[in-house]
């Protein structure tokens, strides 16, 4: 920028006839690139959590509680399988949901209210739809990483008896993204950070996690409490419920 010449030197060579052409075609990907770069800033925490979370849960629930449950449920197991196999895929899906929540809650609210970087994107030729899709896509990448690690841990703990168990991964990704979209919608509506995210976390996500057949079959609940499992936002019920189908497919074909 030191001389006069550089002001209009290079950029125009890379623009087409219209300066918005590439942004319109690839804007979503540019937003994704940006998010991935931001994730790189806290990569070590992403990796640490992705590894420790499954190890701790699988050890405590699968091995600790699981061996107790398996010893007491005889040959039947829980819904016909060992407890670790019962609980594993559900934990995997819930890790996907947690990741989606992390990426789509505060970062989205912050983009509007704190850093205001969404306005910066919009000042370039990027539109709102591209911002949303770009963030979701980046969230998708992070979920892929998290659930892949999780799946490896499951396999290492012997909780995926057949190769078809790997179908839990796409199921978890789709569930995570569906859930992330909802959280993003909430995040973009919040005017203030007045504690809504912790409330959502404690009053919606945690009960969903506990009561939608994650840790025990839904029919274990007294009938008057099962509504909790049924109303657990359909998304998550499907999400966490998916593990049954995947597991049954897995065991049926095993």
């Amino acid at each position: 920028m030191s001389g006069q010449a550089s002001v209009h030197a290079g950029a125009s060579a890379y623009f087409g006839q219209r300066r918005s052409a590439k942004s319109i075609a690839f804007g979503t990907w540019y937003v994704t690139e940006h998010r991935l770069r931001t994730m790189r800033a806290y990569l070590s925490s992403i990796v640490t959590v992705s590894v420790f979370n499954p190890v701790i849960y699988l050890f405590a629930l699968g091995v600790g509680i699981g061996s107790y449950i398996d010893a007491n449920s005889g040959a039947q197991g829980v819904e016909g399988v060992r407890y670790l196999i019962f609980v594993g895929p559900a934990l995997l899906v819930s890790a996907a949901l947690t990741t989606a929540f992390e990426e789509c809650s505060y970062p989205v609210m912050g983009g509007f209210k704190w850093t205001r970087e969404f306005w910066a994107m919009n000042a370039a030729p990027i539109n709102g739809r591209q911002v949303v899709n770009g963030i979701l896509l980046a969230t998708g990448f992070r979920i892929v990483f998290t659930v892949s690690v999780f799946w490896c841990c499951l396999a290492a703990f012997g909780a995926s008896p057949s190769g078809y168990g790997i179908l839990a991964i796409p199921a978890a990704i789709l569930s995570g993204l569906a859930f992330g979209t909802v959280i993003m919608a909430v995040a973009s509506r919040l005017e203030e950070d007045d504690g809504w995210f912790p409330i959502i976390n404690r009053l919606i996500i945690t009960p969903m996690f506990l009561f939608s057949g994650t840790f025990f079959p839904l029919d274990q609940l007294p009938i008057w409490l099962r509504w909790l499992g049924w109303i657990s936002p359909p998304l998550a019920r499907h999400a966490i419920g998916t593990r049954s189908r995947v597991r049954y497919v897995g065991t049926a074909l095993a």
Partner: peptide, 10 residues
């Protein structure tokens, strides 16, 4: 860099 990408610059 990130911002330049929004304009489609390589």
């Amino acid at each position: 860099i990130v911002y330049g990408r929004y304009f489609g610059l390589p």
